[in-house]
Structure formats: structure tokens, C-alpha cells
Amino acid sequence: MVAPAAALPELPSLYRLCVRAPDLGREQGLRGLYDVTHFAARLALPEQPLLGPLLSDRLLGVLDPTNDFHRQLALTATTFLDNGRRLDQTAAALFTHPNTVRYRLCRLRRITSTSLTDGDSGPLDGLHWWWALTSRLSTQGRAGAEHGPCSSKVPFDWSDIVREVLTRPCTPFDTLATSRHTAETAVPYDA
């Protein structure tokens, strides 16, 4: 971890940041030398624990925390923001097609009546979305086993959510290819 030069009175605070930052880097799967400022948002936002859920309620309040599809929408939106709002990079990170990412973002916009991309008022808008989404996913991760396989773990770990999405059994599309499509075999894609 590298930190900029600081005056002697600032060193204790800077040291505490430098001690916390490597854990954040490991959580993100980063290796190598990073400036402590690379982790600025992830270090600062936990200092205001009440604001994350408030933002989440304002932007994502209509999403049902028990609904797997809604959690998938939140995960897609977070990955979209983490990848600089690039569809191709988001799709690659989620091992899906860019049109699937586009569809999920559109569904999120329809459900929440707000958009990650339209009317962006600058970087703070993106930060608010990212904070709300990570707060929502983190809260879902701690809510209890009734909300899915990765929610039983207390520490929030992105790899568990990604692993859950990637290892989930195939949906009815596989069974529909081998059987007749009837109203009984059709399963709605979104809830």
C-alpha cells in the first residue's frame, strides 16, 4: 500500500487507512501496489452506515429482497457500475451476453422508475447508485438463509454472489428444448 506524503499530525489517520485498504484490495481480488486513494470510496462510505440503507430504500425500495431475479438485477447493475458503465465488460464479468445486461438494466429501470444511465447528474449520481446497490446486496447477504444460498454468510463477499449466479442450474430453456412447450412448463423470467 502506498500513501501520499503527509504532515506528522496526519500520519496516525493515514496509517489507519493504509491498514484497512489491503483487506479491501484482497476482497476485490487485487494484487500488487496500489495507492490508498484507490480505495477512497470503500474506505469512506462505511463511516456513515445509516446512509447506505437510506439510499437503498430511496432508489431500490420496490425491489423485493426475497426475489432472486431482483437480486440478479441489483448484481447486474453493480457490476455495470464497477465496469465503468460498459455493457461489453459487464457482460464478460457476468459471463452473459450484452443484450442480457441491457435487458436487466431496462427491467431495473421499469421496476424502480429510475435509471442508472439517463439524466446522470455527474459522478455523485453514480456513487449514490453504487452505494445503494452494494448496501442492498450486503443487507440481503446478512438477512438470513431464507433469502438464498449466499445470504447465510455474515461477511459480504462478492465472489459468493457471482459464484451463485454462475453455478445456478439452467432455467427451463434446457427442459423446453427437449419437451413440448405448454403453459404448465413455461416459467416467467421475471417477477
Rank of each mutant, 00 (worst) to 15 (best):
M1Y: 04
V2R: 15
A3F: 09
A6D: 11
A7F: 01
L8W: 02
L8R: 11
L11A: 05
L11N: 00
S13C: 11
R16E: 11
L17K: 09
L17F: 00
L17G: 05
C18R: 04
P22T: 01
D23V: 14
D23L: 14
L24E: 07
G25C: 02
R26D: 12
E27M: 14
E27S: 12
Q28R: 15
G29K: 02
G29T: 05
R31L: 14
G32K: 00
Y34M: 08
Y34K: 09
D35E: 15
V36W: 07
V36L: 01
T37D: 15
H38N: 10
L45A: 10
E47M: 12
Q48Y: 11
L50H: 11
L51Q: 09
G52D: 01
G52M: 01
S56C: 00
V62M: 02
D64S: 04
P65G: 02
T66G: 14
R71N: 08
L75T: 15
A77H: 03
T78D: 13
F80R: 08
N83G: 04
N83T: 06
G84A: 02
R86P: 04
D88G: 06
D88S: 08
Q89I: 04
L94D: 07
F95L: 12
F95S: 10
H97P: 03
H97G: 08
N99V: 10
V101K: 00
R104Y: 09
L105H: 02
R107C: 06
L108R: 05
R110Q: 15
I111Y: 05
T112Q: 03
L116T: 05
T117M: 12
T117K: 10
D118Q: 14
G119P: 07
G122W: 10
P123E: 15
D125S: 13
G126V: 07
G126I: 03
H128A: 13
H128E: 06
W130E: 14
W131R: 06
A132F: 00
A132Y: 00
S135F: 06
L137Q: 07
S138D: 03
Q140L: 14
R142H: 06
E146W: 07
G148A: 08
P149S: 15
S151I: 08
S151Q: 04
S152V: 06
S152T: 06
V154H: 07
F156R: 07
D157E: 14
D160V: 11
V162S: 13
R163Q: 15
L166A: 12
L166P: 01
T167Q: 13
C170D: 14
C170S: 15
F173P: 02
F173Y: 12
D174E: 11
D174Q: 11
T175L: 12
L176W: 12
L176D: 05
R180Y: 09
T182M: 02
A183Y: 09
E184A: 10
T185C: 01
Y189R: 14
D190A: 13
